[in-house]
């Protein structure tokens, strides 16, 4: 490829150009932050400079139309120094002058976006593409989270939870949405294992040993047939990870019994102990699109119990550790 710029051009974007001077020159000078109200917090620098940030809750999945991007840009121009996307698909307007805060909040509300999700509240939901763009999705994570958040909406706008609550949803075992690491994670799962079409596998010409090497648990057994070699899946060993399906999509498909699992108690930060993954509390709940009442009911029950009985500062995983997972499972029955 010979052209002026070259493709790929090898450009790593420079974050510095996104940040105006007053913020950049105070790097490392911050002393404390305070929560003013849900979604609004103020950082204080050692020279007395105040930086108010407003956390906007974006729709699940991080989809933004170009008009919304322009709206965010206009709010930054009119009310803030700059903006940043959070690691949970939310957006923060950084550096809002105190005098303009009320005006900005009014305008956000008028445009149907929400402010909230800080400290001891329900945080921005995080999820993958779901059916919107992805071929692997078992469940439609964005619509599930949209309906969960509709029901728990009050939670984003108060600080009355015992601790922060993060809900994530991932549509398939690849876990792009990170349900396995959230306080409450909704995971797309297959109950029955992969089905192999011997005829199509032989016709596709995929090397069977190559295919078998992709199975992490050795559940694919070689199967000699008159017209070629196929594989047989040992369903007792299979962990439903879909690795074989991704290697030979022509010949393997997953079974039809699919739904959601709920995992609880994941945590990313290392402040209170070590990071940990969530444990599965409900291993299978049907999740036919928009018929999510069962799923949402179980999440609501969990949140209610946690709110009623957790000690202040106790995340949902710590709470279940303290009262006992088996004890809590009995309560579910």
């Amino acid at each position: 490829m010979t052209n002026a710029l070259g493709i790929p051009a090898g450009i790593m974007p420079d974050y510095r150009r996104e940040i105006p001077g007053p913020l950049l020159e105070r790097t490392g000078k911050w002393v404390e932050h305070r929560h003013m109200q849900p979604g609004v917090f103020r950082h204080l620098a050692d020279d007395g400079f105040e930086c108010i940030s407003v956390r906007l809750l974006l729709p699940p999945g991080g989809f933004l139309s170009s008009n919304t991007l322009r709206l965010l840009a206009r709010w930054i121009r009119e009310y803030a120094l700059t903006g940043r996307r959070t690691s949970r698909q939310g957006f923060e307007l950084v550096g809002v002058p105190p005098s303009r805060l009320a005006e900005l909040l009014d305008e956000v509300a008028a445009h149907g976006l929400a402010v909230g999700g800080t400290a001891n509240s329900l945080h921005q939901p995080k999820c993958c593409n779901g059916f919107i763009h992805c071929q692997n999705a078992v469940i439609d994570a964005p619509s599930i989270l949209k309906m969960v958040m509709d029901r728990l909406f009050d939670g984003v706008q108060h600080h009355n939870y015992p601790a922060g609550l993060k809900i994530s949803a991932a549509g398939c075992p690849n876990q792009c949405g990170g349900g396995i690491e959230a306080d409450i994670g909704i995971l797309g799962v297959f109950l029955d294992g992969p089905r192999v079409s011997d005829e199509r596998l032989i016709r596709s010409g995929i090397n069977v040993e190559y295919l078998r090497s992709h199975c992490p648990v050795g559940a694919l057994h070689r199967r000699e047939l008159p017209d070629g070699v196929s594989v047989q899946v040992d369903l007792d060993l299979c962990v439903r990870c879909t690795s074989c399906l991704l290697t030979a999509p022509e010949a393997i498909e997953m079974g039809v019994i699919r739904g959601a699992a709920i995992a609880v108690g994941g945590r990313g930060g290392g402040i209170k102990g070590t990071p940990r993954l969530a444990r599965v509390l409900h291993h299978y709940i049907p999740a036919i699109p928009l018929n999510y009442d069962d799923l949402i009911g179980k999440i609501e029950f969990l949140v209610d119990r946690w709110c009623a009985r957790a000690v202040p500062g106790e995340r949902i995983g710590d709470f279940l550790d303290r009262i006992g997972w088996d004890y809590f499972r009995q309560e579910l029955e």
């Binding site: 974007p13 974050y15 930054i76």
Partner: peptide, 10 residues
């Protein structure tokens, strides 16, 4: 590729 820190100006 996003600018690091998620910073996105107007």
């Amino acid at each position: 590729l996003s600018p690091c820190g998620g910073w996105l100006g107007s």
